[in-house]
Write a protein that binds this DNA or RNA. Sequence first.
DNA 1: ATTCAAATGTTATTTTAATAACATTGGTAG
DNA 2: CTACCAATGTTATTAAAATAACATTTGAAT
Lengths: 259, 259
Amino acid sequence: MRGRSAIRLARLQQALAGGGTLRLADAARLCGVSEMTIRRDVAASGGTMTFLGGWLMMARDPQFAPLYNLDEQKGSHPLAKQRLCQRAAGFIDDGDSLFIDCGTTLMPLVGTLDAFDQLTVVTYALNVANAVSHLPNVRLVLLGGLFHASSSSFESDAMAASIRRLGINKAFISAAGIHPEKGVSCFHFHEVVPKQAAIDSAGQRILVTDDSKFGVIRPAFFASLDQFDIIVTDAETGQHLQDARPTPEEAGAPRVMIA
Amino acid sequence: MRGRSAIRLARLQQALAGGGTLRLADAARLCGVSEMTIRRDVAASGGTMTFLGGWLMMARDPQFAPLYNLDEQKGSHPLAKQRLCQRAAGFIDDGDSLFIDCGTTLMPLVGTLDAFDQLTVVTYALNVANAVSHLPNVRLVLLGGLFHASSSSFESDAMAASIRRLGINKAFISAAGIHPEKGVSCFHFHEVVPKQAAIDSAGQRILVTDDSKFGVIRPAFFASLDQFDIIVTDAETGQHLQDARPTPEEAGAPRVMIA
DNA sequence: ATTCAAATGTTATTTTAATAACATTGGTAG
DNA sequence: CTACCAATGTTATTAAAATAACATTTGAAT
């Protein structure tokens, strides 16, 4: 009786591949073995599966990973993003058709959408799509293609054309770097096309970015600052931007909103 | 102090919008309130959120939905699907480019893919895409469009064209109904186009279906039985199909595999 | 202000899960 | 066949979460 543990683990993994959880008791029955044996199997699996209070699940980090660890909690990053998105959500109206960019910055924005009537969300990010897919009041259009795990987003030749066909009301754009003169940049080159297409075709362009991105340059530039109508940001970045442009009402200057 | 519970729930919901979990203690701190209050809030939320062993999460997140309830467990459906998929996986080779249909039937198939080298998976189903997205050895191509929650899949004008451009090695197709004379059907009309395109363009077509679908007719027909090269099914359906075609080697007859 | 009731906090109790310790089984080498 | 050892099962113990009970706070009406 050698290697049976591996067989059981494979079977459980297969059962859980599509997401979902299993009661410990059910996992045990599924494998025809005692609960203790399942516990030992999972413990020996080296972290591919875990128990969460009696429920077995795949421990793929991003999904299951707690949002805040007690340690990093003082760094109020997630809270900051929530504040930014709360502010950004102020620009949304019932019936809008929104473009939501990839990354984690705009994630809390999705959490605010259930308060509206009949929105449409266009995105090329898998994480955004998953969050939106649960909202009954939001129509979801996902722009597919080849998946890039690094940014949880898709790349496609047809991306730009698809976006231009869609009629986007308001585009919420995120960035990995924002520099007062050089402009706005991101990590991955395949993000450039959809970002630019959304900026081109949207009625209103809203850049959402926190202080940690200010002054930073990342590999791929995709826009200059004055291509945005509104910039929602933290106090520090906001101050910088307003100092750089003493007359924010002048033509082409985005309105800066501090969250 | 009225309606604060709702405010806290909204905040938590927003924090969890992108998926993931929160420790009870962290949720309490996030809202500046005691753990007991969070417990009461969640209990009053009417099932939108739940605790799983001290972790707060969105209840409807498929990631955390239980696969089997103790009650329905006797009906060994999920086990049957696993057996079918195990059998179906036998047709996969390293380097293959696979089409995987929507629904839950083919979900366990994804669980077998980590054993191969360098696969490509093409799908128009969000649940399949999510499962595949975690596999480092599989390239994922998601065919996007307008999302349909009923089947967790996408609809698009460009679907057929996209599929034909892709070069699919083996197409794994699921069905909601399979009838010996009338053919193979599904619930949703928007599934017909991608299914047919995949059947048209794939090198090998593999229908995977369990006994509960046999003799059933659903709203949308998409293929006849002899359009498949292989049918992977349970004992009962397999017997029926073999009886109906006494000479399975005759031209155009699919090979029937009983799992 | 005073009073009341809803909301929240605190503590105690029950239930459940996780761990540890020990007993049993079963395959395999000698 | 027998003795051994890994694998598994069983039971006991510990830790943690869910519930319940009761105390305290807080906001609004009188």
